[in-house]
Amino acid sequence: MTLQVEILKQKFNQSLGLPFKELLPESVIEQGLWELKVKYKKRLFDPFITLWAFLSQVLDTDKSCHNAVSKIIAHLAGQGVEIPSSDTSAYCQARSRLPEQLLEKLFGKAAQNLEEKVKTEHLWCGRNVKVIDGSSVSMPDTGENQTAYPQPTNQKPGCGFPIAKIGVIFSLVTGAAVALAIDVLNTHDIKLARKLYSFLKPNDVLLGDRAFCAYADLISIKNLSCDAVFRKHQSRHTTMRKGKIIGSSDKLVTWHKPKKCPKGLTMAEFSALPLTLTVREIFYYIVIPDFRTEGVSLITTLLDITTYPTLKTVQLYYQRWQVELDLKHLKNTLGMDVFRCKTPSMVRKEIYAYLLAYNLLLPFDVVSRYYLWYTSKSPIAARYSPSFK
């Protein structure tokens, strides 16, 4: 999939005009503007031309506004209309007028269109799996950016760049980004995750690493009629003396409500938590040579071992690495690592523009990455040892 997106990116960069006009029709943008009740004037740099140019700009090797305006001129040259000036001020002003909510809405719509193409046989045990993770991005060192997204505290003033923390949910079946949260660098991953739970749909399964494995969050996910598969947090210990054994590496355990209110929760939210929660714990060893992790303990709210067998659950967690590859792909292949915009609002628009372009470039003949991987020879399927410590 990475190679396919790279090929499409190169094709779009080499084409004249505004190639995103074909992937993001004017009618779709018009619908988004109508839903947000956004009014605009009929002018050269209307929301349609501006958005198509913005998407091409973030993916282009030359990300300058001059290059974006040149693409607009090439597009209009074939329309038989008056060619605008090559000055960039009008385009920059039009880009700043684009509502952030419009980019967010179109980004979500592009992900939804991909998921609508997925067939039931491509899902994991009939469930749609979403993968969550966090990363960081830097931006120009301006006063506004430093105020909104301060540089790391261990750097001296003037020696670093503003950095934002982002949390992203990807669809495992399509590879599309479906939700985004942006905050300051020192924000914990779980705080970003709590902003993203609202994007989950009933019957989804959320897959994540140990940073997201918290009592309150498992309950929040269950309350949304969803389930979770997380690696167990290192502060909890695995033992055979507690729980009900349901398999050779599988047991049901009861977690108790924390005695103190965790950070990030209000007292009202803490008081509403139930006193106990039953979860399923799977412990296994990975015996792949030179593999960094040897013992893994998974926590999941999928309690039915018949519907969700142990091996399939272990294989699913192995696919969590896909989100690392997706984020790396966004940064390396598409260039979403260092942003160019000089204000926080434009930086957020730039992030959404990257994710929207990424979703639009994903192949239309969607086939589940998990399905392809699961039906092939998986190293984790044949080379793990189920056992409790």
Rank of each mutant, 00 (worst) to 15 (best):
T239Y: 08
T239Q: 05
M240Y: 11
M240W: 11
M240F: 07
M240P: 15
R241C: 12
R241W: 12
R241P: 11
R241Y: 15
R241F: 14
K242L: 09
K242D: 07
G243A: 08
G243W: 02
G243E: 01
K244H: 06
K244Y: 10
I245D: 10
I245F: 06
I245K: 15
I246V: 07
G247L: 05
G247S: 07
S248M: 13
S248D: 12
S248H: 14
S249Q: 05
D250Y: 01
K251S: 07
K251M: 15
K251W: 02
L252Y: 03
L252M: 07
L252F: 06
V253N: 06
V253K: 11
T254H: 02
T254P: 03
T254A: 05
W255D: 00
W255Q: 02
W255M: 05
H256I: 09
H256L: 10
H256N: 12
K257D: 01
K257L: 00
K257M: 03
P258Y: 10
P258F: 08
P258M: 12
P258K: 10
P258N: 14
K259W: 08
K259Q: 13
K259D: 13
K259E: 14
K260L: 13
C261F: 05
P262V: 10
P262T: 12
P262L: 07
K263P: 04
K263R: 14
K263W: 08
G264L: 10
G264W: 11
L265A: 05
L265H: 06
L265I: 01
T266R: 04
T266A: 04
T266F: 12
T266G: 05
M267I: 14
M267D: 12
M267F: 06
M267V: 07
M267L: 13
M267K: 06
A268K: 15
A268W: 12
A268C: 09
E269G: 04
E269T: 02
S271W: 01
S271H: 15
S271M: 11
S271L: 03
A272C: 13
A272Y: 08
L273Y: 00
P274A: 15
L275A: 12
L275G: 04
L275S: 14
L275N: 10
L275E: 15
T276H: 07
T276A: 06
T276I: 09
L277I: 05
T278K: 12
T278I: 10
V279P: 00
R280N: 03
E281T: 08
E281Y: 02
E281D: 06
E281W: 00
I282N: 00
I282Y: 00
F283K: 11
F283T: 15
F283S: 13
